[in-house]
Structure formats: structure tokens, C-alpha cells
Design a protein around this nucleic acid. Structure first.
Lengths: 391, 391
DNA sequence: TAACCTTTGTTTATTCGCTAGACAAACTTA
DNA sequence: TAAGTTTGTCTAGCGAATAAACAAAGGTTA
């Protein structure tokens, strides 16, 4: 058996097409769906009635007449199920409950200092338990739990390495499934952020989008051809460890002159220390810069310049439509973005530079959780009938 | 109208599936196709009979019995049409005629020194004319002409810039279509090489393959998820202009410390000159190295080392299954490949390094032409009925 | 206000491609 | 020679899409 066969496929595809049309254009009538999709009116009618039976969509009264019978408008039944979506950071966990449209209906944060696996898992379980108790009653219940983690994740949802947490070989997907018995998605934090910005953020119009997660280190999520690109084993996007200075200092990864040795929050704070800012953080530096302290301004602009060098490489490598700067450094937007732009303007090849947009993440601290929500929702809609009822 | 609809699609897909099964496993019986594809025997029978009518496949007598009626074996009718596939280099043009299986049935080369557009086009036309006159009679005639060029090509087949030829804005696809009236494909040389190695060369088992074309400069072709990745406008793969030394020398592209300033034939020869090899070329250097001249050996190993730095970046960025080193430098294989491997072994992150294969291009000087042939053939099989009869 | 036109949504008849299973052909084995 | 196997074709039936007719519900115009 290779892959493609028969004609359930056609029905399944068309049903998905109808549902996506409703998602994208709601509220929308059957007639209008038929027109935009090119499907026959009868076909649309029958698929819509199935979707209504499955409680995935709702009728919502009649719309305005355009010179004839008034249309019955259709809406996504966004509260037919909910996701629990989590950004597991190095000193905090952000968890949200979203509906099937990606609206956040609940939110909780836990901060911690002990990064020990056992401890953090306890926090994670507690957070999920709390969120779960607050999820509204619904047809499909919790359709999935997604966790974005700052580390290397296999396609089986095992965290191979999370350097800033000091974790190795944690089968997080299995651990969570064992406990919650709903579909679990574990993904790298930058991949989640990339998808979040693509689906709900600044990249909704872009199919070729590179999301750079700039925080303690650098992670990069690649949206290529509209889909998350993960490489052979899921380890793509290690652009933080792209050499930008061939004889540069050793990185703990084994390579030399890695990008994140020049353009990360960690390096920023080290340099700040050398410049007399003792025991500071990026918030304080931004405040200082906003108050006109030239040292702070210079430090932030230097960070932006180094970011620009790596982003220029990204532009040359991928010819993307959009490059998004996300994660913690975006609070320094005012100082780093012009520096990045200046570097790109100066160094990048015209053909590649002309069409690219450079943006700050729109979802801010929610990029990753929203990406995880999007993964959960997408997974659910691929096979709603198989969803585990667990409410 | 968005995209997907009806059930001709099913038939078309299944027909393509049957044809691909024959291509891959020929000679093969109808019964065996039914088994491997999962399609019903009757369906296979009917699709096969259509393919026979279209002369795309042939029956080739009976095979061995396995305890019952002897099967009728089916073969791709590889001589139902031919491609003209061309590698347009900076001082030569290599042109081949291939059948639909990618067998080279004819080959011609022209060398030139005057890179003037008019002149080169004259040569190109002459070469194509000669090849065309020698194409055997066939059902579908010339199914396409493909040209790989060392430059930036838009999706409309316009050469925006070919720096080493000194060309700008050459609408080569239109020029050739005007003259030959068959499907024309113009593509970057490294993209062609990547696809050639993927379909006919060392990368037949790999869906995540990065092909590095190392010659005067560096071009890179990206095979991601089994398909050529071209970015937003077709300008991806400019990894030759990836900064590997942030404060390095200026490149004519506008950037600094570009990879190809360290790891290209051009740089190799410049360094050779500085080391006393006057007016040499890479062939002579390899010969010298093979004779044990330590200066030559060192120059080649240094080239390999610099290649290794960029390839390490590639491994971190893409997590590929295979990295292929192609184009002219592969004649120095014996000296550069160990140096590349050494650098990767030393610098690359374990997770990404473990699964990656490093190979020299198998098709050698034919990588690009075979890639162009593969594009032509693929394009033909997508819609054989629409092929222009032109023999 | 009535007659007619428009638009929406459902129903019915038809078509198309796949599948299952019967069957014929051709061969092997005992 | 009889029985079993494998290959390939043929026929009936099914599911899903389409086209077209029809019903429902509104607007427009005289």
C-alpha cells in the first residue's frame, strides 16, 4: 500500500474546504460557500448539514437580502471544544485555555526558580489541572494539550535536550498522555511561536515566514510553503548556532562564533555588566535607554546590529516573505528594530531584500501558546470524529 | 474558486500512481501494481489500458509464473518523447538529449570565451538546433527544453542577474519559447543540480537534501520535503552570500565576510597565485597535490575546511538528511572531503550531525543537466495530453 | 396589493470512478 | 487428466459530485 486512493478522500477534502471557508469568512451563507469554493450548491448543503450534526458549526439567524430570499448565516461553533496550550519557559510557565477559534478564555502563570525536572513537572501538572477544571462544558471537551519547550524535541514528543533547563531525554508527550489521555503535542518553543504568528499574528498573509525567538539564546522557527519545516528529525532551525564569525569564541554547543554568542539577551546582559550595569535585566536597560542613557542605547543598538547580521543571512538563505522578531527582546523594539533594518538595508542583496517584511511579533508573550493552540486545533479538525471525549 | 474539487482528481492521481509504480518497479504486472498500490485490480486494468493507448507504457511479453497464469509485464515507454536539457556555464554549454527515463541519448558541448549575451545566445541556439535535429522520431517529440543558468532566475524564467556572465534581465524563457514553441524551463544551476542528484544521483533516498554547487562562486539548491524550495520569489539558496565572518572583507554583493569569499574556486586560485602558482587552475592544483606538493595540499584542505564551516551552518539550519558537494571542485574530492568531514565532526551539534550524510555529487558534470531533464520529464507527465507535438 | 423577478437552499436524476466479486484464460502441480 | 493458482477482464453496485428543477422567502414595480 503506498498512499492515495479512493473517493472518501474527495469528500473529506471538500468537507474540510467547506469548514475552512466558514472559518475564514464567517458569517457566511451556503450559497456564498458554493460560489467561493466552486462546489455545487447541493454538495455544500449536504456537507453543511453533516457539519451541523457534528456540532462543528452553527446557524446564526438570517443575513441581509441582496434582492431575494435572505440567507441563513453559518458560524464556526467555536465553543464545541477547547485546547490547553502552554509555553514552558526557563523560569515560568504560561498556560491558556483557548476555544476552537483561538480565543483565550482563561490564562494562568506560574513562576519558578528551581529548574529540577521533578519540580517543574509538578508545577506543570498543577497548572494543567487548574486550567482543566475551569474549561467550560462542551461537545468535544479538551481536544488537545500542547506544550512549547525551549529545547530540541523529536517527532515523538521527547525532549532530547533543553540546555537552559538542564534537561535531557524527557519523554514529555508520554508523561502527559499517561496523565491526561487526550492528544498531546510537544514542540520547540520557536516552532510554536512561528506557527502562532503565522496563524494568529503578524504573518497571516505570509506563507514563507521565519520567526526568530530572541531570548536567553536564539531559536528559529521556519514556516516554508505555509507549513512548519522541521527537517529530517525535527532539529531544524538551530540558527542560534550558525557561525557568523569563523574564528569567534567557542560556544558550549561545540561550534565557534555562533550567532547567539553575539545577539542574545544573555550576551546583552554580560556586556551591560562590563559596562557598569550591575545585576540588571533587559527591562531596566530599556528604561535606561528611554531615559536617554547613551550606554544603554548603544548596547541595545549593538544587539540589533548583530541580530541584523543573522537576519541578513536568513534573507539570503530562504528568500522569505516575512521575518518576525519575537520573544523577550521585543520589549526593546524601539532600539533594536531600526538597527536591524539598517544592517539589512546596508548588507542584504537587493533581490532578496526588496520583498521582505521585518516585523515584531504581534502576539508578544503569547506567540508560542497561540502556536500550540493552532497545532491542537488543526489536529482536532483533521479528525473531529476521533476526538477523545474527556470533559 | 479556491482549489480542490471533484473526482477527476482521484482518477488523475491514481493514474499517476500507477504510472509511477511502473516507472519505479518496471517490469511489473497489473496484478502486482494492484497489490503495491492498494487499488482494485479492475481499476488498475482500466488505467493501464488508457496509459497503453496514450503510448506512455508498453507491454513487454510475459514474465515468470509464480504457480499460475503468467503475468504480462509492463514497461515505461521511455522513448515516447525526449527532453533537451542544458547546463549553461560561464565558459561552456553542455547540452544533452534524454529520453523519458533520463537516459542520455545524445550530448554536445560548446565552449566560448566571449560572454556577450548575443554571442552566447547564438551558441545556445546552435547547440539546441543541432540536438533537436538528432532527436529520434517519437510519439510526443520534444517534451521540453530546460536550461540551468548560473544566476538569479524568477518564476517567469527571466534571468535577473548572472554575475559571472555579466547578464541582467534576460527573459530567456520567452526567447526560447518564441523560437522553439515547446515547454521551456529556466532554472538556477544549483537548483537543477540539487534536483538532478535527488532524482538520478546520490540523493535518491533522501527527501531533505542540500546541494552545494561549489565553483567560481557558491550556489545552493534546497530539496525540502522532497521538493525544490525556492522561497517567495525564487531567490532562495544564496548561501554563498551567508556571512561567516561578520567583520570580514566586503563582497561585491554588498554584504561582508560571505562564505564564497573563503570557499570557492575563485578564492582558491587567488590564494594559489599568492603562493607562487601562477596562472594555474584547479586541475593543476589537484595534480600537484597528488604529487605530494604540500602547498597545494594545504590550499585544498583549507578550501575544504572553509566549506566545512558553511556546511556546518547548513546542518544546523536545515537538519538535512544529505549534503551533496557538487560542481567543479569535486575533482579535488580526495583532499576537500576529509577536511569538510573533520570540520563537521568537530563543530556540528551531535543531534543534527548524527544522521546527516555528506556526499560528492554522483552525476558529476551532469548534475545540472539531469536536474533540468527531471524537471522537463516531471512537467510532461503531469499533463502528457497537453504536450506540444513538435517533431 | 398583485404579479413578477431574485436569491437561497433542497431535492431529484444523472454521471463518473472505484470496488467487490464472478468469470475466463493460462499456467503449475499432483 | 483433474484440481488448484494466478492473472486479467467484466459486470453490478455504490458513493459522491453535478446539473437542473423546484420550493421558500424575500424584493421590485406598476
Amino acid at each position: 500500500m503506498s498512499q492515495t486512493w479512493n473517493q472518501h478522500v474527495v469528500k473529506k477534502e471538500n468537507k474540510a474546504l467547506v469548514l475552512n471557508t466558514i472559518k475564514a469568512n464567517a458569517p457566511v451563507s451556503r450559497a456564498s460557500i458554493a460560489q467561493t469554493t466552486g462546489l455545487n450548491k447541493g454538495t455544500v448543503s449536504s456537507l453543511v448539514s453533516e457539519l451541523l450534526n457534528e456540532k462543528l458549526i452553527n446557524e446564526s439567524g438570517t443575513g441581509e437580502s441582496s434582492g431575494g430570499r435572505r440567507p441563513v448565516m453559518l458560524l464556526l461553533n467555536e465553543t464545541a471544544g477547547f485546547t490547553i496550550s502552554i509555553d514552558l519557559g526557563v523560569n515560568h510557565i504560561l498556560g491558556v485555555v483557548t476555544d476552537l477559534r483561538g480565543n483565550i478564555v482563561n490564562e494562568r502563570t506560574i513562576t519558578f526558580s528551581n529548574e529540577d525536572l521533578e519540580e517543574v513537572l509538578k508545577h506543570l501538572h498543577q497548572l494543567i489541572d487548574e486550567l482543566r477544571n475551569e474549561v467550560p462544558e462542551s461537545e468535544y471537551g479538551i481536544v488537545g494539550i500542547g506544550v512549547g519547550v525551549p529545547g530540541v524535541v523529536t517527532s515523538d514528543g521527547e525532549i532530547l535536550l533543553a540546555p537552559n533547563l538542564g534537561w535531557k531525554k524527557v519523554p514529555l508527550k508520554d508523561i502527559l498522555f499517561e496523565r491526561y489521555r487526550v492528544p498531546i503535542i510537544v514542540e520547540n518553543e520557536a516552532n510554536g511561536g512561528a506557527y502562532g504568528e503565522k496563524v494568529y499574528g503578524v504573518g497571516q498573509m505570509a506563507d514563507e515566514l521565519i520567526y526568530t525567538s530572541i531570548s536567553i539564546g536564539i531559536g528559529v522557527g521556519l514556516i516554508l510553503d505555509g507549513k512548519l519545516y522541521k527537517g529530517l528529525r525535527g532539529f531544524s532551525g538551530e540558527l542560534g548556532h550558525m557561525t557568523i564569525e569563523k574564528d569567534g569564541p567557542d560556544c558550549r554547543c561545540g561550534n565557534k562564533g555562533c550567532w547567539e554568542l553575539y545577539a542574545s539577551e544573555k550576551t546583552l546582559l554580560e556586556k551591560a555588566r562590563e559596562n557598569g550595569y550591575k545585576d540588571t535585566n533587559i527591562h531596566e536597560l530599556v528604561t535606561a535607554a528611554e531615559n536617554g542613557e547613551s550606554k544603554a542605547i548603544h548596547l541595545l543598538e549593538e544587539l540589533g546590529d548583530y541580530l541584523g547580521i543573522g537576519i541578513t543571512n536568513i534573507i539570503h538563505i530562504f528568500n522569505p516573505e516575512q521575518v518576525v522578531v519575537g520573544n523577550t527582546v521585543q520589549i526593546a523594539e524601539k532600539f533594536i528594530m531600526p538597527a536591524i533594518e539598517k544592517r539589512i538595508e546596508k548588507n542584504a542583496i537587493g533581490f532578496n531584500k526588496n520583498d521582505v517584511q521585518l516585523n515584531v511579533a504581534k502576539l508578544q508573550k503569547y506567540s508560542t501558546v497561540m502556536g500550540m493552540a493552532a497545532f491542537n486545533i488543526e489536529h482536532f479538525f483533521e479528525a473531529p470524529d476521533k476526538a477523545v471525549i474527556s470533559n
